Amino acid sequence: MDGKRNILFVCRRLNIAGGKERVLVNTASFLADSFQVGILQLTQADSFYPVGTGVDMYHIEASNAFGKRSIAAKLRGFIQDIKILRRFMQDHSTDVVISVDYFVSWMFVLGTLFSKRPYLLIGWEHIGYNNPWVQGLGRKLKNYILKQLDHLVVLTRHDADIYNKMGIPVTTIPNAKSFESIVKSNLEQKRILTIGRLSPQKGIDYLLDLIVVLKDRLHGWKFILVAQDDLFTVDELKQWIAEKQIGHLIDLYPPTSKIVDYYLQSSIYLMTSRNEGLPMVLIEAMECGLPCVSFDCETGPADIIQDGVSGKLVPTFNLERMADSVLALTDDATRKMMGVNAAASVEKFSLERISKQWQGFLNATKKKAEC
């Protein structure tokens, strides 16, 4: 051992082509220069994104407790998973555990309720606090779990202010750009790009409704959707597209590790999410010089897009305003001016800048642990 602090990231799995997974892999990889870094998956899966050679990879075989049908089966599976995780942690010494998922934080907290943790437990939230999918009792349980952590990392100051008021130690560290692109889109292709999982959160239903609104107003433009099965499937999506009679306006593609090509071959990025944390797709699109149009959901887009400068922020779920914003960017001069501004504006998310924030934060936690 070379005396470096041991940092262990814990997640469900890495074989998903998602922003959270890409950020985790990139963050772990650049921290491996300064720390001994590992990633633990709750199930064995090959990472969709390449992992740095300095990162140690581990997995356990959790039972997917929440996928069980009955409450009793869920409870048995959850207890079993906690025991498996505890055995792993007993066999692998670490200084800091960073939970990349609220479900994972839950397992760690409940697994150490009656014992002292020999490591700092840090939660890393990737979704906004006011997530509509976590309400009522679920919200109370989540707040309880987060209060048991040693620290919490969030993506926006908006959420940090909320957690501060709850008495939770919190630090804001935005996501870093996942790549640098010297080449920018020439913004001459009549292609409007959207990338996302097929879940209610991503608002693909609003995207389809928007295309219906625009189908007689856009001339020569195509919508490009890179979609991944989630709560809905691509087959279901194709059925909805057929029902709305917009198949001639939209092309579907599967997830790919070469997503940069899609950005560079498009001219506008469009996001219709109901809620977000700090959406990587907007940062990536702007890195490639694309102006973005997005619903101004509570957290995320406004931290990235400057309305009227690098793109358009639209009142949430207002399809007519969204349609007008897309049409405004079909003007060549407007689109290219905003594209230049977009590329310049995401320098604040550079890997060098964000890595220094992570290093400073982790070094500060060491000093606190030694007190």
Rank of each mutant, 00 (worst) to 15 (best):
Q245F: 08
Q80Y: 15
F108G: 00
F295L: 04
R157F: 07
H248K: 12
L231N: 07
V96G: 04
F295W: 09
G128W: 04
K238F: 11
V154W: 00
A176W: 00
Y144T: 12
A32E: 14
S178C: 10
D2H: 14
L225A: 06
L31T: 01
S310R: 06
C11M: 01
V170Q: 04
I250H: 08
S267L: 11
T272R: 01
F108Q: 00
Y206G: 03
T53P: 09
L141P: 09
Y49W: 15
S345V: 13
D307T: 06
D296T: 05
A17V: 03
L193F: 13
G220K: 12
T299M: 08
N64R: 09
T194I: 05
Y129K: 11
V23G: 00
D216E: 14
Q265D: 15
K312P: 00
R353C: 02
V314H: 04
K356E: 14
V293M: 07
K20G: 12
N318K: 10
K312A: 06
Y49Q: 10
D81V: 00
C297A: 12
N175F: 02
M107P: 04
S99D: 04
V37G: 07
K142I: 12
H126C: 00
L155Q: 07
D230K: 01
A72S: 15
G123V: 07
K366F: 09
F9H: 11
M337R: 15
A227R: 02
G128H: 06
L218G: 02
I305A: 05
S181K: 07
R76T: 14
P118F: 01
P50V: 13
K336H: 13
L249E: 08
D331S: 10
A285W: 00
L237C: 03
K244E: 11
T94W: 04
I79G: 06
V96F: 02
V109E: 00
D205H: 08
D46M: 11
C371N: 13
W133K: 14
Y58E: 07
A32W: 09
L110D: 10
G77C: 11
T27E: 01
L24M: 08
V153K: 00
T334Q: 14
K368R: 14
A227V: 14
